[in-house]
Design a protein around this nucleic acid. Structure first.
Lengths: 218, 218
DNA sequence: CGAAAACCGTGACATTTGGCACTTCTGCCG
DNA sequence: CGGCAGAAGTGCCAAATGTCACGGTTTTCG
């Protein structure tokens, strides 16, 4: 609202193409991106196989590609686009964090790997991409961090700053116990177990017990 | 939907601290960042060892750390900051693509890895970080792609009798998604996702989603 | 000493989850 | 053709989970 004040004198709108197999998504993305007038959608398609041609024809600043599509995946489409123009700015859109895809996406030379859902942050991300940065959605961070950690060594993102009790609770979660069982196993009340879990989630930046188990078995 | 909307404080002035061993750089960064009034530098230091205390004292939205410093490196400083607050937004600054560090930076949970030189793009990058994105300078991208090791394995310790859809759901559970996120990811209703989960639990003799995640990762 | 942190507990509360019943649509097999 | 299984959906319900705000104890450390 009060944000007005176009920061950069960069008056010209960012041109993009959108390729996503789901028509409603294409439409809503277009509407949202064009709302402020700083992004202009110069082409759309629901077919991955059409992406490269669409790119060649419209030469947008950025190509937004859904990574999961029926026939031609976003990765294949990106490969063809980048084959034709190695300086193309390809940004992938994904509905969830898939670390297998993100590695391949980055290897291909993608400039972004964003989460479709949080649409409010899309425009800012595209602007950063125009500035030459590479942008990844927050939900992907965990997976990238885990990947990076894996490629180094076992850096337990979990064990970090947990207290002894919290570590015990985390271990039991990783064994598949529910709160009642943990309370029995540790001679605690169920409420206390819950408090420990809340502390673990807060400290580790996780959202639920399943993610604790995943982090434990990295 | 990011879960870290916590105490973001709202709004328009992003508060940052700057830690860099070179005083002129600190000064010029401060000047440039504050020029527009959208970023407020609430603390600076030329000593990596002081970073964690400075962070704890000023609680900025973002900590900007030089990655190469004489005594305490930016990585060590970040470790201490993130140890105290796992949701801290740590952004590294580097003089040029020093890709050796990026892997460790990402493993630590850094939100950004930017090139000091192109200062004009800094503010936009910080804004994207505030939106929950992770931002990397373009020069760094190559190394991340090289992380492409083997992220290929996909667990199937799960009973083989699962249908395709059920397998997909199991995989997303193992990624840590909740029902709402899975529904969005698979274009299903939340109710249907639950039905699939019930089927998985029944078929595999498990009792909750956490056990599905554990089984998936062995 | 006094402050801080770990630890244990309670109770209220909202949200998430899992189970169950029942319907619809599709493609496939005998 | 009928029957069946997978997939998708709805609605309802109870249990499990996570958060918050407390109060209490003990230990650690400056």
């Amino acid at each position: 609202m009060s944000a007005n004040a176009n920061r950069t004198g960069n008056a010209h709108a960012i041109t993009v193409i959108i390729v996503d197999d789901d028509p409603p998504i294409v439409q809503s993305l277009r509407t949202i991106l064009e709302a402020r007038g700083t992004v202009q959608v110069v082409g759309t398609s629901t077919e991955g196989s059409a992406a490269a041609d669409l790119y060649a024809a419209s030469r947008p600043d950025i190509a937004l590609l859904d990574i999961r599509m029926p026939h031609t995946s976003g990765l294949a489409a990106a490969e063809r686009i980048l084959g034709g123009d190695p300086n193309a700015r390809v940004v992938f859109l994904t509905t969830f964090a898939d670390d297998d895809y993100i590695v391949r996406a980055l290897a291909l030379g993608a400039r972004g790997y964003l989460i479709k859902q949080d649409v409010a942050t899309l425009e800012g991300a595209l602007r950063a991409v125009m500035d030459g940065q590479i942008v990844m959605g927050a939900e992907v961070s965990g997976r990238v961090g885990a990947l990076a950690g894996r490629s180094l060594e076992g850096g337990s993102a979990l064990a970090g700053s947990l207290t002894e009790r919290e570590r015990e609770v985390a271990e039991l979660i990783a064994e598949g116990l529910d709160n009642r069982e943990m309370a029995a196993a540790l001679y605690l009340s169920e409420g206390t177990v819950r408090n420990h879990i809340s502390a673990i989630l807060q400290k580790c930046g996780l959202r639920n017990r399943t993610q604790i188990a995943i982090a434990w078995w990295r």
